[in-house]
Design a protein around this nucleic acid. Structure first.
Length: 250
DNA sequence: AACCTTTGCAACCGCTCCCTG
DNA sequence: ACAGGGAGCGGTTGCAAAGGT
């Protein structure tokens, strides 16, 4: 026996929203707010929709100040930077891009930005390195101070990043131990490419800029070796599912 | 012009988180 | 401390439009 459905599936409409439904939802929320209860909202608003569907429609399309259309270069850079840092935490990334929704960014990443990046990165013939045991999060942190791999607590989910206004510094704090694990990762910050031969580099003074330095397209062993000779590096993140085995190196 | 393939995006699904009783 | 339920999130799907043959 599974969990109870959030709504009466038989009596809710699915699929694209009509202009009439949009108008009803918008009018209701503008007059009454969401009331903090999406489940009962559709009934109150006179809509035959699931509450989750209403919430999604409002957040992604109807709410004020939604920005549609092309993403700017600056937005691209921010998305790339944050994706390289925190992965597919679209809601967090969206929070840094006013007017953009997580769904928008996710779609943009999956359909355009990822291809744009991958298309410009020479595919490595190297097979992805396997690390065991593999974490459920597909993310490993390597700490060269003690030569060990570890998984971020609950796959980063217990981390709440705080960003400075310029995104030049990100910090993660662990709620239980108040650790600031992420901060030291940003010396020699390194991210994915945005243009031919270009790399987004975050320097030790926490500024970032597009650079034409040689790409860091290494395997795990090479990275480990590199780390052992690079004093400024403490940590890198290895995305195990990365198709071509690339490492995001910090 | 007709058909097929690709692309882009809105929306759904199912899971986890978190709040409340 | 625990269970239940709603909110929020990320992955995935479906479909219309655009592009290619």
């Amino acid at each position: 026996m599974g969990r109870a459905p959030c709504c009466d599936k038989a009596n809710v409409k699915k699929g694209p929203w009509s202009p009439e439904e949009d108008a009803k939802l918008k009018e209701y929320i503008e007059q009454n707010g969401t009331g903090g209860n999406w489940i009962t909202l559709p009934q109150k608003a006179g809509l035959r929709r699931c509450g989750k569907s209403c919430r999604l429609r409002w957040l992604n399309y109807l709410r004020p100040n939604i920005k549609h259309g092309e993403f700017s270069d600056d937005e691209d850079k921010i998305i790339c930077t944050l994706f390289a840092t925190i992965g597919s935490r679209w809601s967090i990334i969206a929070a840094q891009l006013p007017g953009r929704t997580d769904n928008d960014i996710k779609n943009y990443w999956n359909t355009k930005l990822k291809k744009k990046l991958l298309g410009r990165v020479p595919q490595s013939p190297r097979k992805p390195h396997q690390i065991s045991p593999s974490p459920s999060s597909s993310t490993l942190l390597y700490n060269c101070s003690n030569n060990t791999y570890h998984t971020p607590p609950t796959s980063f989910s217990c981390f709440e990043p705080s960003y400075s206004s310029s995104f030049s510094k990100l910090e993660y704090s662990n709620g239980d131990h108040n650790q600031q694990i992420g901060k030291h990762c940003y010396n020699n910050f390194y991210s994915e490419v945005a243009d031919d031969n270009q790399k987004l580099i975050m320097s030790s003074n926490h500024d970032y800029e597009w650079s034409t330095e040689t790409p860091l397209d290494y395997g795990i062993e090479e990275i480990k070796q590199l780390i052992s000779t690079t004093s400024s590096c403490n940590t890198f993140i290895y995305y195990e599912n990365n198709a071509d085995g690339k490492v995001l190196y910090y």
